[in-house]
Design a protein around this nucleic acid. Structure first.
Length: 887
RNA sequence: GGGCGGUUAGCUCAGUGGAAGAGCGCUUGCCUUACAAGCAAGAGGUCACUGGUUCGAAACCAGUACCGCCCACCA
């Protein structure tokens, strides 16, 4: 063990300490800070602002890794690359969190009062709102932190008011009494998007409503019998023969005793239920519309907490579900309930808390969407904004074309308070950016500001321009709007992307981003959504602790294909952690073989005398660079990662380093080889840097000492370009052939079971002089990598030997009868039959006049060559088989 | 009810018209002085099914089945 190489570099890469160190270094040097004075072309991304209540989950990790890759890539490519960070105030979510805190202290927000409560939320934000930002930094996010924004900071508040006022003045914001989705737990209205539908098992109840004139009853079916106390009609389809005689008559509501009419409405589906529909305009969307058409009274039967109100008679004070239970019980006794069937219903639930939403009549603020949606549809149709992958376009269009007005008011405290003042005298509404002194209609001073706040997504919709300083006409806006790309996942396509499109076009007159890249959602290895209750959550913070941020980032990148979900498992991450270690050790090898003064050398002269393996690796490098560039330009992150992985591990480590080892021990070739190693490693590090910034910086810093003019950090170094002069077709093919020979010999060794440390002697029978000469040039490589010494033979094949047949060459490994002849014979036979099958197919193709007539020339040529090769191979193998049987 | 994805090796996924691929797992042999988080050699596939287009289909088209997602006021 005394001849362990003298090196200070650890055998295993340890990310601990490294990541933090370089992140601090980058920040201190201000590499991520972007100046508006720069003459470089702009590139910009605004972050999807994470909630201040959030903790980095694996979805954030993916989303931000991809943004960081793009930002770092563009920065290295010479762009003035700006990535604006920020956080979202997340109205309901944050309010809930703080309320929970209060609850622990035994108080609620009403005890505190609005003003005091909001102070508490701000205090909470100061304490915990930075958490997710710190986590993004751990991930390596290269945001310009000097421009960090918050959706409730002063500037954004001005933007929100400006937008609201302008929309109101143009009639695009209005206020009115409508039926909205109401969450009784959160105590607020929700937009349609904030309601999720869930299949729920329920019952369909058939209720008998007796005719007022006596003599029978109507049967109506409902899943919500408690709403019957708000019924104001029964509706049937006018074309329904069954009910021809009853339209215009009246029935009596059981329990309540109220008389309600039977009306006819086209909206009633004759096939559903009993064909007769009970109409509750104040608690059902369809009924609301029917009610409007027939001027029906709207009777509310619940309060904002979902508790039955005074209109519910003897059920007043009961929770809606308790009321349902009781009412069914009572109806059963009284024979009002005809039957109850099991029924599966799509129940609307609050997307925040899961409470069943209640359609509730209330005074709310809305945005008129149609006029805003039209330009946003056109922008995507005309390609002013590209959606990638394209498949999402149709989803976007579908939603935009059927868009409904957006309920933007929320009855909570945390959020942007609506800048409207309501006059207590004349009920007039004064909407204004600054607090008005009096009512603009009656001049009364008796005005009060609207207590509602805006939907969180209202401010998010302005993010691409508000984060750049709007409504001020800033340099940032001029340079960086529209932003280059938005990176997001599809679950907020409507919530956010669509609304940003509308607002951007409305207020900036241009789209908010050129591209929208939509990535997948992360699931566990079984394809299930990660959730705490399932216990299948992969916490990126734990992953970063154990495997490092680079391994996490690379894993996410490699999995970021454009499908709909990504299945992430620990074994995948472990695999890419191993890749990081591989890079580390390849670098370690390079360092161990460099001399201290390597940097002072003039490398250009060394390049004039490249070896074939040198040319081969440079060819591979340039092709890899090209592929990675093209992939990143098309947002094919997984392809970029795969290309880099393959280049570093297979090409550079498995072959180039191995091929080059003897050259490092030869003083005639040592310097040149060192130069190529450094060049290739340096390029490899730089193409990898956007994906794995930490380890590449760590190695780069060590490599920098060997190079005279390297920038002080890899993150500001330039991205490698493709050098066409370094594509060496001939050398490439030559090494590919040599690789084949080495693999074939290794295969023979394994077949015989030769111990890896033992040298074998093989007999090569080349087809021609060219092949012979080529092999001779690489004899030492074959000796080194296959541990085989070579004998050439032009005619004679050895008698006792096993063979491998490759293109242009037969390889024999003489054996001393130690091998299992039977097994080897079988193997060859199997090979022959495979070749035969291929020959057959090829022949069929070549004898097909249609193929010869219609296929392109080069394909036919290739097929002919292939046929020749296969035939030759078959012939050679049959000879080998013959020889084998003679042993 | 409408729309959109997916179905390729045991698992997770690439591959978009011209010889079925990768990683993990598996088998076998190796601590070969960069790396056992490694090296080498293997085994393993009717590319879901049925038709069609084409000289040629895993890929393009149509349909079927299964899995998943989104949208929608069917009591």
């Amino acid at each position: 063990m005394e001849d362990i190489p003298k090196t200070e570099i650890e055998k295993t890469y340890d990310h601990k300490g490294v990541e933090e160190k370089w992140y601090r270094f980058w920040i201190e040097r201000g590499y991520f800070h972007v100046s508006t004075k720069s003459s470089k072309p702009p590139f910009s991304i605004v972050i999807p602002p994470p909630n201040i209540t959030g903790s980095l989950h694996v979805g954030h990790a993916l989303n931000n890794t991809l943004q960081d890759i793009l930002t770092r890539y563009k920065r290295m490519k010479g762009f003035n690359a700006l990535w604006i960070p920020g956080t979202d105030h997340a109205g309901i979510a944050t309010q809930t969190v703080v309320e929970r805190e209060l609850h622990k202290e035994g108080i609620n927000r009403e005890d505190l009062g609005r003003e005091e409560f909001i102070k508490r939320v701000w205090r909470w934000k100061e304490l915990y709102g930075k958490r997710i930002i710190e986590q993004l930094k751990r991930l390596g996010a290269s945001c310009d932190w000097s421009r960090e924004r918050f959706t409730m900071d002063g500037g954004l508040s001005i933007a929100v008011k400006e937008v609201f006022v302008r929309l109101y003045k143009e009639g695009l914001v209005y206020r009115g009494y409508y039926l909205v989705n109401w969450c009784p737990r959160c105590g607020t209205a929700l937009s349609d998007l904030e309601v999720t539908r869930e299949d729920t098992k329920g019952k369909l109840y058939y209720l008998r409503y007796p005719f007022a004139s006596g003599g029978g009853y109507m049967v109506v079916a409902t899943t919500r019998p408690e709403t019957m106390m708000g019924d104001t009609a029964i509706a049937v389809n006018p074309n329904d023969e069954r009910f021809k005689g009853v339209v215009g008559r009246e029935v009596i509501l059981p329990v309540v005793g109220r008389r309600i009419p039977i009306i006819a409405d086209e909206g009633v589906d004759m096939g559903m239920g009993t064909g007769a529909l009970k109409i509750t305009p104040a608690h059902d969307f369809a009924d609301f519309d029917i009610g409007n058409r027939h001027n029906l009274q709207r009777i509310q039967i619940m309060d904002s907490k979902g508790v039955m109100n005074e209109n519910a008679g003897r059920y007043t004070g009961l929770d809606r579900f308790e009321c349902r239970r009781r009412i069914v019980e009572d109806f059963e006794k009284k024979g009002i309930l005809e039957k109850a069937e099991d029924y599966s219903i799509q129940l609307g639930k609050c997307y925040r808390c899961g409470t069943v939403v209640e359609p509730m009549l209330s005074l709310q603020w809305f945005v008129r969407m149609k006029p805003l949606a039209e330009p946003a549809i056109r922008a995507v149709e005309y390609g002013k904004t590209r959606i990638i992958p394209e498949g999402w376009k149709s989803t976007y269009f579908e939603w935009m074309r059927n868009i409904r007005d957006w309920c933007i008011s929320r009855q909570i405290w945390w959020g942007h308070r609506i800048p409207a003042w309501i006059c207590k005298d004349c009920n007039g509404i004064t909407v204004s950016i600054d607090e008005p002194k009096s009512c603009e209609y009656c001049d009364s001073k008796n005005i009060e500001q609207e207590t509602d706040v805006l939907d969180t997504w209202f401010s998010s919709a302005l993010w691409p321009f508000s984060a750049l300083g709007w409504p001020k006409q800033t340099e940032e806006l001029r340079i960086f709007y529209p932003t280059s790309v938005l990176v997001t996942s599809f679950d907020i396509l409507f919530f956010w992307v669509a609304r940003m499109m509308m607002m951007g076009l409305k207020f900036m007159g241009d789209v908010p981003f050129r591209d929208v890249y939509i990535h997948a959602l992360i699931r566990d290895e079984k394809g299930e959504k990660m959730s705490k209750t399932r216990g299948n959550v992969i916490d990126p913070l734990d992953i970063m602790d154990e495997f490092g941020a680079d391994a996490l980032r690379f894993s996410l990148t490699a999995l970021a294909a454009q499908g709909r979900d990504i299945r992430l498992s620990l074994s995948v991450i472990e695999g890419y952690r191993n890749f990081m270690n591989k890079i580390w050790n390849a670098s370690r090898f390079v360092f161990m073989n460099l001399d201290g003064n390597a940097g002072a050398r003039d490398t250009s002269s060394l390049y004039s005398n490249l070896s074939t393996p040198d040319k081969w690796i440079l060819t591979n490098l340039n092709r890899a660079v090209k592929e990675v560039e093209e992939a990143l330009d098309k947002y094919e992150f997984d392809k970029a990662a795969r290309t880099i992985y393959q280049f570093i591990w297979s090409d550079f480590c498995d072959w180039y380093i191995e091929l080059v080892k003897p050259m490092l021990n030869d003083s005639g070739t040592r310097e040149r080889t060192q130069a190529v190693l450094v060049k290739v490693l340096s390029s490899a590090l730089r193409i990898l840097h956007p994906i794995a910034p930490f380890i590449t910086e760590e190695i780069y810093q060590r490599l920098r000492g060997f190079s005279s003019d390297a920038p002080e950090s890899i993150s500001i170094s330039s991205y490698p370009g493709v050098n066409k002069d370094e594509i060496y077709e001939e050398a490439y093919n030559e090494i590919e052939s040599i690789k084949q020979i080495i693999v074939a010999i290794r295969n023979l060794r394994a077949t015989v079971g030769v111990h890896p440390s033992n040298r074998v002697s093989v007999i090569l029978v080349p087809d021609n002089e060219t092949v012979l000469e080529m092999i001779k040039r690489h004899e030492s490589s074959i000796l080194g990598l296959a541990k085989a010494s070579i004998e050439f033979s032009t005619r004679e094949r050895p008698k006792k030997a096993i063979a491998q047949i490759i293109n242009g060459l037969e390889i024999f490994l003489p054996v001393e009868g130690l091998i299992d002849i039977q097994k080897e014979t079988e193997r060859i036979k199997r090979e022959i039959s495979k070749v035969l099958k291929d020959i057959e197919l090829s022949q069929k193709r070549l004898s097909n006049p249609d193929f010869l007539g219609r296929a392109p020339e080069d394909v036919i040529e290739k097929e002919k060559e292939r046929f020749e090769e296969l035939s030759l191979k078959k012939q050679k193998m049959e000879e080998v088989l013959e020889k084998l049987s003679g042993i």
